[in-house]
Amino acid sequence: MLPLSLLRTAQNHPMLVELKNGETYNGHLVSCDNWMNINLREVICTSRDGDKFWRMPECYIRGSTIKYLRIPDEVIDMVKEETAVKNRGRDTKGIKSQRGRPATRGNFGGRGGKSGNIGGRNLNQKIKAK
């Protein structure tokens, strides 16, 4: 689970974003992208010294200005559950492939057709045998 995937999972959750200049933004995450640019809604902005506050309905923050984000504990628990479910799915697939056609691993999810794949595999085996 990469940090940015975790951020994506945290969508619709409250979070605190601190910028490099020390300002903090409290709000709910609406959306984010691969550059860590984010949209927040119902935001409270706090100045660096914590003495001034601004409320705004929404704001956009450029990813490069962020120092860190603090997210609720339950988001990480959600991720743990999700990955557990995914792994279970992967396990059953693995068992199937072991039974049916061995070593579909590295075939990028079955792209390119069965026969071509088998031919390629046999070729590889021959090379290994030499």
């Binding site: 490099k20 120092k67 860190y68």
Partner: peptide, 11 residues
């Protein structure tokens, strides 16, 4: 206590 952090690497 602060909980969960996503820290941007450059910091």
């Amino acid at each position: 206590p602060r909980g969960v952090f996503i820290v941007r690497g450059e910091n």
